[in-house]
Simulated assay, not measured.
Amino acid sequence: MRKLLFLISLISCNANAHSQTPRQIKAFSADERYIVMLDVSNLNDYAQSYEVLVENRVLGTYTLKPGEDKKIRINVDVPRRGEWNHKIVSTRSVLQNGEMTRTEIETRVSVFGLEVDDQ
Rank of each mutant, 00 (worst) to 15 (best):
R73V: 07
M37G: 01
D77A: 11
A30Y: 00
R80M: 07
K71H: 01
N42V: 05
I8V: 15
A47W: 10
E51D: 14
G60V: 02
N16M: 11
A30W: 00
H18C: 14
N14E: 15
T63D: 02
V89K: 04
S29K: 00
S19R: 06
E68N: 00
Q20R: 09
D31C: 00
L5P: 11
F28D: 06
I74H: 01
Q20N: 11
N85C: 13
P66M: 04
T63K: 03
K87C: 10
G67Y: 05
A30H: 00
Y46G: 09
Y34G: 03
T21C: 03
C13W: 14
W84K: 05
D39C: 02
F28P: 02
G82Y: 11
V52Y: 05
D69W: 01
M1W: 14
A47Y: 12
Y34V: 05
Y50S: 03
A15T: 13
R80A: 09
F6N: 14
N75S: 04
D77I: 04
H18S: 14
V36E: 04
D45H: 12
L38K: 01
R81P: 03
L64A: 01
L43F: 10
K3S: 14
E68A: 02
R81H: 05
P79M: 05
L53R: 10
V58M: 04
I11V: 15
V58W: 03
L5F: 15
E55P: 06
E55N: 14
L59D: 07
V54W: 08
R80K: 07
Q48D: 13
N44E: 14
T61E: 10
E51Q: 12
S49K: 06
M37N: 07
E32F: 07
N44A: 12
D31S: 04
F6Y: 15
E83W: 09
V40D: 01
K26Q: 07
G67S: 08
Q48L: 15
S41G: 06
Y46W: 13
L4W: 12
K87H: 15
A17C: 10
L7G: 13
F6S: 15
K87G: 06
E68T: 00
V76C: 05
Y50H: 06
H18A: 14
G82D: 10
L43R: 09
A30L: 00
S41H: 05
L59H: 09
S49F: 06
P66L: 04
F28Y: 11
V76F: 05
V52W: 07
D45F: 12
A30I: 00
K26P: 01
R80W: 07
L7M: 15
S19H: 08
R81T: 08
V40T: 02
A47C: 11
P79Y: 08
D31Q: 01
A15P: 09
S19A: 11
G60C: 02
R73Y: 08
I72K: 00
L5C: 14
V54Q: 07
N75H: 01
N56G: 09
N42R: 02
L53S: 08
R23V: 08
K65A: 09
I11E: 12
L5T: 14
I72M: 00
L4S: 13
N42D: 09
L10K: 13
I88V: 13
